[in-house]
Simulated scan of single mutants.
Amino acid sequence: MSYQKTNPAVVNHSSSSTYCFDVESFAHSMRAYNNEISLTFMVLSDSKSEEPIPSEVVKGATT
């Protein structure tokens, strides 16, 4: 089993906890994942859905 660098993190601004993974790397990965999922949803949204995503919004999000 491999261990990664640990970063202390403040939870609820009252106590500190140490995680067994790189918190900054995890946060970066989650932001990238959420961005890709959002873009995929917008691109796959079509005019048949109840509330299609306007093409201008999709173009703005992809630049």
Rank of each mutant, 00 (worst) to 15 (best):
V23D: 00
F41M: 11
E50M: 00
K59Q: 07
C20D: 14
K5T: 12
A9W: 14
I37Q: 09
M42D: 00
T6M: 05
T6K: 05
P52G: 01
H13S: 13
E56P: 03
M1F: 15
S55V: 09
L39M: 11
T63W: 15
I53N: 03
F21A: 02
V11D: 13
S14D: 12
S45H: 01
N7I: 09
I53A: 01
S16Y: 08
A9E: 06
Y3F: 14
E36P: 02
P8F: 02
C20E: 08
Y33W: 13
D46F: 06
G60F: 04
Y19C: 01
E36I: 04
S47P: 07
G60T: 12
V58P: 00
T6L: 04
E50D: 09
L44Y: 15
S55G: 08
P52D: 03
G60D: 04
P8G: 06
D22K: 02
R31W: 13
T63I: 13
V43N: 08
A61E: 06
K48P: 02
I53S: 06
S49Y: 10
N12M: 00
M30A: 03
S29P: 01
P54T: 01
T18G: 05
M30W: 01
A32C: 02
N7D: 13
S49H: 07
E36S: 06
P8W: 00
T6P: 05
E24F: 06
M30R: 08
L39E: 03
S17K: 08
K5G: 07
T63G: 07
V11M: 12
L44E: 10
F26V: 07
N12T: 04
S38Y: 11
S38R: 15
S16N: 07
Y33P: 05
P8R: 07
V43F: 12
S25H: 06
G60S: 07
H13A: 09
A27P: 03
Y33N: 14
K5I: 10
S14W: 05
D22G: 01
N7K: 09
M42L: 06
D22Q: 00
Y33M: 13
M1G: 15
V58S: 04
V57K: 11
A9T: 11
H13I: 08
D46E: 09
Q4V: 10
K48Y: 04
E50Y: 02
P52R: 04
A27S: 14
T63E: 10
P54S: 04
S38T: 15
S29L: 05
E24P: 00
A27I: 13
E56A: 11
S55N: 10
A61H: 12
S47C: 10
N35M: 09
A61L: 11
E51W: 06
S55K: 14
H13K: 07
M1S: 14
K48W: 07
C20L: 04
P54D: 00
I53C: 00
T63V: 11
P54N: 01
V11E: 15
P54L: 01
A9V: 11
S16R: 08
N12W: 05
P8Q: 11
T40V: 02
F26L: 05
K59A: 03
E24S: 09
R31D: 14
M42S: 01
R31G: 03
P54H: 02
K59H: 05
H13E: 13
